[in-house]
Design a protein around this nucleic acid. Structure first.
Lengths: 126, 126
DNA sequence: ACAATTCATGCAGAATTCTGCATATAAGCA
DNA sequence: TGCTTATATGCAGAATTCTGCATGAATTGT
């Protein structure tokens, strides 16, 4: 490989690594690689204000690490690139295959639809 | 996995990623993962002043990404950790298996010993 | 002991990234 | 249209990282 091609590869890899070298962004990626999630979901998960979360999502989106998919008021983010998945597998270990739970505190349809009141669950188990 | 364990993993991974997110450091790692190399070798390769190279080597060494091995005046660095090798395989692709060449401009025994004058080489091929 | 070579360290100004906040946009609904 | 909800954007001060330089330490050979 030519020297300039190497240089280019190093700087491209380093650009992508910079995006990953951030605990909150890693947690976001680790979450959305399992299943796509909306912003308010991640907001609850990280315990950070919404603008902060959106900011990090933007960084990841513009860096090509995640894709967004809008549905009404909600925007769901996911990891669509297979190369990115491979990096995450190496860095964080393989993604768990179990379904991700709906999250108390997230009000998106995905979370509320699948989350019956605790009384129902208890009643059903009698 | 518990939440605090996750947080710890994210921040540890992010710490290591920060060390990798740097073109010159990536080039150093890519070089020494093939075979151990001395400082002046890397100095020629990167085209950067020696204190700069040593500084980056220190960062990598203190981060546990490389090991040093002293031999007289020279210090040879290499990637000893298998986990680090795996990360590099993912990030930069698998390491080439061919021998690394001695480098013109590097005066360490490793490079000069294996580098006979061009006249010898030509004479031998007659 | 002295000089030469190889490498390490400390430090400071420059450049970049981080992160919190105020505010903007856009969709759905009454 | 006006209100609410969900998300995006712009910006600025704070914190961190980068990088060049001066200098220090250790080893080898004379």
């Amino acid at each position: 490989m030519a020297d300039s091609a190497r240089q280019k590869r190093y700087s491209e890899a380093s650009t992508r690594l910079k995006l990953l070298a951030h605990p909150e962004r890693l947690q976001i990626l680790d979450t959305v690689r399992r299943s796509s999630q909306c912003v308010c979901h991640l907001e609850v998960l990280l315990g950070k204000p919404q603008p902060y979360v959106s900011q990090q999502l933007r960084v990841l989106r513009e860096g090509g690490l995640i894709c967004d998919e809008k549905d009404g008021l909600n925007t769901y983010y996911c990891v669509c690139d297979l190369g990115v998945r491979a990096w995450l597998d190496t860095i964080l270990g393989p993604a768990p295959t179990e379904r991700s739970h709906p999250l108390a505190g997230c009000s998106c349809p995905k979370c509320t639809a699948q989350k019956p009141p605790i009384e129902w669950v208890l009643a059903a188990s009698l």
